[in-house]
């Protein structure tokens, strides 16, 4: 879980995003233990309180469950819930922004779709 942080969001949010991404792409499976707070803190050189805050957020979202004295585990159904939530968020927040950008740049759906199919083929990729 190493890597640099960007400046636009608080670190605990970024940490939360990273764990969420790991759950989404299956790196962390349901029922699997999250790395310990100490481990994440040391690897990322972030204070443990920040890590706890990120984990707490995941607990509040129901994606992670705390087992007393054992640690944090990915909750069952976390992946599905996360997926639907991320979809919803994409459609609600990200998509309108992208639409804005498309409009501003004077692109249209047909041109973009054409690009999409061509980039599926590696030989044609620019």
């Amino acid at each position: 879980m190493q890597g640099e942080w960007n400046d636009s969001q608080p670190i605990y949010r970024q940490l939360r995003e990273r764990v969420a991404a790991m759950i989404l792409d299956g790196t962390l499976r349901e029922g699997e233990a999250l790395p310990s707070v100490r481990q994440v803190s040391a690897e990322c050189r972030v204070n443990p309180i920040t890590v706890l805050k990120a984990y707490q957020e995941l607990v509040d979202e129901g994606l992670v469950e705390k087992r007393r004295g054992v640690g944090m585990f990915v909750a069952s159904g976390a992946s599905t819930r996360l997926l639907s939530r991320e979809r919803e968020r994409f459609l609600k927040e990200t998509w309108p922004e992208i639409q804005d950008t498309i409009r501003r740049l004077g692109l249209n759906a047909a041109a973009l779709l054409a690009l999409e199919t061509s980039s599926d083929n590696p030989e044609d990729a620019p």
């Binding site: 942080w5 100490r38 040391a42 990322c44 050189r45 204070n47 309180i49 920040t50």
Partner: peptide
Amino acid sequence: YTSLLNDYFDQERTILVTTHQVEEVQDILT
């Protein structure tokens, strides 16, 4: 700093640090 967080720090300990390399410690600080 990795060792400090991994092998030393816990809720019962306190660390007070001064440094000019602020960027490197700012995420560690509470």
